[in-house]
């Protein structure tokens, strides 16, 4: 807290609210900017560093006093043990299946629908779009009661599927609820940025609407699709509340639940929890490091009107 506040204080000072713009000030200003950013990055990465070294400490050493902030005797045994002693391979598999299926559904529907919303002024376009914007604001947690009832006894398909409680299908269906409107919205905004002249050119070249969409527009939309897919995947991968309400065994439980299960009473098994947490965090960290520009563009498209 104090760090944050002092960062802020220095920040205001660094912006040089009363400075006159002479050359040495510019240099000083940059140095201060580097310093502040460096400090900020250090502070926010410290917890990640701490949980990482917790995960590679021997599990007994986690409760040593004084606390060591450097990895003495690093070990991978916590990682090995969570796969040996708990069905972590199943949790991981569930997370992968649920997140990728949700992503596939949302990206496919979101892309085609977003395109139509962007290009065609059909009847109800505005109203439907507004309802999609509205749908994005519905707090998912408000719907835990209806989703629980619906998944226990699904209408229409219930005769075929039986109860969907504690299945991956229940999670996939639920996750499309908050990802699909988002996907439609990002893709609509993305297509808005693709010049309509391309559509016209395709039509002049004798392409049907479908051909034009698939051959000309879709390739242009790849970055938008990538951004949508990455965000939908991350949102689904990280989801906790519905997984808590709709699953009860490792046939459907995902990694966030698996990690929370280390809090047994208040004997928290920190070393193994840290290892499990690092595994759950891995896709996020990798996406963040390597696909940062897609996440940024997706969020920006999704949030700000073009």
């Amino acid at each position: 807290m104090s760090t944050n506040q002092s960062t802020l204080g220095q920040l205001i000072a660094a912006l040089g609210l009363d400075t006159d713009n002479e050359w040495p000030h510019v240099v000083r200003e940059r140095l201060v900017a580097y310093g502040l950013l460096g400090l900020y990055v250090f502070v926010i990465w410290f917890p990640i560093y701490f949980i990482f070294i917790t995960s590679i400490k021997p599990s007994g050493a986690v409760l040593d006093i004084p606390i060591s902030f450097l990895p003495t005797q690093p070990t991978v045994s916590n990682y090995v043990e969570i796969f040996q002693n708990r069905p972590f391979e199943l949790y991981t598999l569930n997370s992968l299946i649920v997140a990728s299926t949700t992503t596939l559904i949302c990206v496919t529907l979101g892309t085609v629908t977003g395109y139509s919303f962007s290009r065609y002024d059909f009847v109800g376009n505005k109203a439907l779009l507004l309802s999609i914007v509205g749908a994005r604001m519905i707090p998912p947690i408000a719907l835990i009661v209806p989703f629980f009832t619906i998944m226990s006894n699904p209408p229409l398909i219930g005769g075929l599927t039986g109860s969907l409680y504690d299945t991956r299908i229940a999670l996939i269906l639920t996750y499309t609820f908050f990802n699909l409107p988002f996907a439609v919205w990002i893709m609509k905004n993305y297509f808005d940025g693709v010049p309509e002249s391309l559509d016209e050119q395709a039509r002049i070249d004798g392409c049907s609407r479908w051909e034009g969409f698939v051959k000309i527009i879709l390739p242009m939309a790849k970055p938008g699709i990538a951004a949508t897919a990455i965000l939908a995947f991350i949102f689904s991968w990280n989801e906790f509340v519905f997984a808590l309400v709709l699953t009860s065994s490792e046939q459907a439980q995902t990694l966030p639940i698996a990690v929370s299960l280390f809090v047994a009473d208040d004997f928290v098994d920190w070393a193994h929890l840290a290892a499990g947490g690092m595994i759950a965090a891995l896709p996020g960290i990798l996406f963040g490091l390597f696909f940062q520009q897609y996440i940024v563009s997706g969020l920006t498209q999704g949030a700000v009107k073009e």
């Binding site: 990055v41 926010i44 990640i48 991350i234 966030p256 929370s260 996020g284 996440i295």
Partner: peptide, 12 residues
């Protein structure tokens, strides 16, 4: 570097 915390699972 500043984006990563937001991408991690909230539970973690």
């Amino acid at each position: 570097a500043v984006i990563v915390p937001w991408i991690l699972p909230y539970v973690m």
